[in-house]
Design a protein around this nucleic acid. Structure first.
Length: 473
RNA sequence: GGCGCGAUAGCAAAGCGGUUAUGCCGCGGCCUGCAAAGCCGUUUAGACCAGUUCGACUCUGGUUCGCGCCUCCA
């Protein structure tokens, strides 16, 4: 029985879908004006893991992750670059797709773009005005009136009173209440705009998710996810918009049953964020680390815990993943359905059902690796690979990982790994043959010299009764 | 200031009111020509102070420290 920590309730709750056997899930995706950083990687990987586990549990999952392709920063960046907004956003959507594919993220069922749903947003804003939850200000902007929505603050646990006390931003004089937020911004020079009953303009940020989620998943759906920083104000405002717009006879309509928020990626114990400038893009990290190592690193922590990024931690993750692949090496495993009655599989399931406890699930993987190493049983190896597959890990051939192309940036430039020189696959194979011969002749000095030479080039040799194998450090 | 989260061994990171987490590192042994890998064993825990309990890392209260949200942010 799956339990999910529901931000709305501030506790783990048994997951019951609205429609038996089906799950509708919406996750706030990226604003595409720059490359994705590791914080974005975490959202993508975490909710990919969630959708995989829901599917492995037998649910028919409809997973929607939106793309924000119209926003202040996008407009600004496009202007700076002298390119159109469409060019800019498409470029970074393509980059995002590349990054997420490398990280083993299965594409969501739908990836709606905000600009494709402006009509829906306008309709929703009109409904909000009609029902008395929004008003047109003197400057032509349309604002949401937080005072008229009784449940405002229920997700973030904030009261309007507290929020006003903590007000740090210059108050927009067009607002009736400082906490009111914009639904529609009237057009400004050199900005894209759409026609609306309130004049030309463009949507505010929050309204897009309300419009897209209700259009694609309905007024009431199962799971809504995103980074912890979206809890307030973004998700709070989504609830206010959706539940008010979909209210019937003055009664709000519940928007989402389970709200999920993943923890931040940190650098030196500080949140990784664009504003702090302490972020690492996914592609920068992938220059140095295998994408599966990054995925492993992310899933190694519980999704709600903070995750500290550093080279040391990635190195550690790499060694740990190497242990798992080493256990799988040499086994020809066939894809078989997981027997969830198996003690280790049951333990894995229990961990995942407990609010997606991937660290505990991974401990099962390591215990299985130990069993594989001890017994050489192909059944154990198959189970290891299958269970890891549920997390999107360990699906490559073991040698592809262990002998994987050296990461160029970390290579000594005098080596020629790709052209047959020291450090290359072919040179390694050649030297292994020479060394095997030397060993047969009991010429251990030569054999050790070769091993040392390769070791210095990052190639580790491992002798066994079946011959010598190699891997990259 | 308001609201919230956290503090576990050298590092990372979980569960659990009493029984080995797990990975990396360290140490000892087995294996090996020697290594590596693997296997076996093993040293380092639960910020601090009280309380509840036969028994607390685990529950309760307090203290200290760290972090996050309250402004765009995954």
């Amino acid at each position: 029985m799956l339990k999910i920590y529901n931000t709305l309730a501030r506790e783990k709750q048994i997951f019951t879908p609205i429609i038996a056997g089906k799950v509708s899930m919406y996750v706030c995706g990226m604003t595409v004006y720059d490359y994705c950083h590791l914080g974005h990687a975490r959202v993508m990987v975490v909710f990919d893991m969630v959708s995989r586990w829901l599917r492995a549990s037998g649910y028919d999952v409809n997973y929607v992750r939106n793309i924000t392709d119209i926003d202040d920063k996008i407009i600004k960046r496009a202007n700076e670059n002298g390119e159109t907004i469409g060019q800019l956003t498409q470029r970074f959507i393509d980059a995002m797709d590349e990054d997420s594919e490398k990280l083993g993220v299965i594409r969501p069922n739908l990836e709606p773009r905000a600009t494709e749903y402006v009509d829906g947003m306008i309709q929703m804003i009109a409904a909000l005005i009609e029902k008395g939850f929004a008003y047109v200000a003197a400057n032509g902007d349309v604002f949401y009136s937080v005072n008229n929505f009784e449940g405002y603050g229920k997700l973030s646990g904030k009261s309007l009173e507290d929020l006003r006390a903590g007000e740090r931003v210059e108050v927009d004089t067009h607002k009736k209440d400082p906490m009111d937020f914009v639904l529609w911004k009237s057009v400004k020079p050199n900005e894209p705009s759409w026609a609306s009953p309130w004049g030309n303009g463009r949507p505010g940020w929050h309204i897009e998710c309300s419009a897209m989620s209700s259009h694609l998943l309905g007024e009431h759906f199962d799971i809504h996810g995103g980074g912890q920083d979206l809890q307030f104000p973004h998700h709070e405002n989504e609830i206010a918009q959706s539940e008010a717009a979909h209210s019937h006879d003055g009664k709000p309509c519940q928007m989402v049953n389970y709200w999920m928020h993943n923890g931040f990626v940190r650098v030196d114990d500080e949140k990784m964020s664009k504003s702090l400038g302490n972020f690492f893009t996914i592609r920068t990290v992938l220059e140095k680390y295998d994408a599966e190592v990054v995925r492993f690193f992310i899933l190694r922590a519980h999704y709600r815990s903070p995750l500290n990024y550093s080279d040391k931690h990635l190195d550690d993750a790499k060694l740990a993943l190497t242990r798992l692949y080493t256990a799988l090496r040499g086994h020809v495993v066939t894809d078989i359905a997981i027997d969830w009655q198996h003690p280790q599989a049951a333990r894995f399931k229990e961990a995942m059902d407990d609010d997606f406890n991937t660290p505990e699930a991974m401990a099962v993987l390591f215990d299985l690796a130990n069993e594989v190493n001890k017994t050489k049983a192909v059944e154990a190896a198959s189970l290891l690979k299958s269970l890891a597959g549920v997390l999107g890990l360990l699906q490559r051939d073991a040698n592809d990982f262990l002998q994987g192309s050296p990461i160029v940036a970390s290579l000594n430039t005098t080596l020629e790994p790709l052209t047959g020189g020291l450090g290359s696959d072919s040179y390694t194979e050649l030297m292994i043959k020479k060394r095997t011969q030397a060993k047969q002749e009991k010429n251990f000095a030569e054999s050790d010299r070769i091993r040392k030479e390769l070791a210095d080039a990052g190639i580790i040799l491992e002798d066994s009764p079946q011959g010598t194998t190699w891997r990259r450090a």
